[in-house]
């Protein structure tokens, strides 16, 4: 089982590195954009435009106009966009894992060995989980180091909660997708995994973020304890169901 997990992670290392590169690129773009746009908040015409076009209040504009680029990225990245990025990355990762897992070549070379379908699905799930977790931690560390947060006592717990909940939630969402994919979809609908993250990304970008956070976690965003207990149960149930259904499938390898 350990060998299988190791092999699955190594096999998907390119996509994992790609996700990491995406995080770095995203951060860089965000900082650059924020640095460029931050002075604009001081401009009265721009403030009026925000009020008219986006319905922003004076208080919101005032809070933003006091920020520099790094402040904006710090607030946006950790508290608003981090879970979304992680979810998008999870879906990309899971899409890649599943399409690879369902490739005739990949599956036949494993199932010709004394590896049961249960082990195959479980190892894919565990290696995917580890990859998402790794991505989450790396994103968190990059953010932490990039923004050079000194006030760790105040921020650390809040950030840890964000990381923990968003990683668990992303995993839960990803596992449910995996469960469905392994059981019903298979490798035919690859576009599903490409289109869904793009749609999600745009939906999240143009909507108010706060309600989306509660959609992300199946147990609500605020209750950390329910997430810590609920998400692993959901993940375990998804794996169990996917194994149950996958066991009955005829595989035309």
């Amino acid at each position: 089982m350990f060998n299988l997990i190791k092999l699955q992670i190594l096999k998907n290392k390119k996509i994992l590195l790609g996700c990491m590169a995406f995080i770095v690129f995203y951060l860089f773009t965000m900082i650059m954009t924020a640095e460029l746009t931050a002075p604009m908040f001081e401009n009265e015409n721009f403030q009026n435009m925000l009020k008219e076009m986006f319905g922003m209040t004076d208080a919101e504009i005032a809070s933003m106009s006091g920020m520099n680029g790094y402040d904006m990225v710090e607030t946006g990245f950790f508290h608003q966009y981090y879970p979304i990025i992680l979810l998008v990355l999870s879906i990309i990762l899971i899409g890649k894992y599943i399409t690879k897992a369902f490739e005739t070549t990949t599956m036949s070379c494993y199932l010709c060995l004394p590896i049961s379908r249960r082990k195959y699905v479980a190892s894919t799930a565990v290696s995917l989980g580890l990859s998402v977790l790794f991505c989450g931690i790396v994103a968190y560390l990059i953010g932490l180091l990039t923004f050079n947060i000194v006030d760790m006592d105040v921020n650390f717990w809040a950030f840890s909660q964000t990381v923990l909940i968003s990683t668990l939630s992303s995993l839960a969402v990803a596992y449910i997708s995996m469960c469905l994919a392994f059981s019903f979809i298979g490798g035919k609908y690859r576009s599903f995994y490409i289109v869904v993250p793009i749609i999600l990304f745009f939906v999240f970008m143009f909507k108010d973020i706060s309600p989306i956070l509660s959609y992300l976690s199946p147990f609500g965003w605020e209750n950390i304890y329910l997430n810590v207990i609920g998400c692993p149960i959901l993940i375990a149930a998804s794996i169990y169901l996917s194994i149950k259904l996958f066991k009955r499938r005829n595989l035309s390898l």
């Binding site: 070549t105 990949t106 010709c112 390898l253």
Partner: peptide, 9 residues
Amino acid sequence: AGEIAFPEN
């Protein structure tokens, strides 16, 4: 197998 398959890389 008729169509041989191996893990990538």
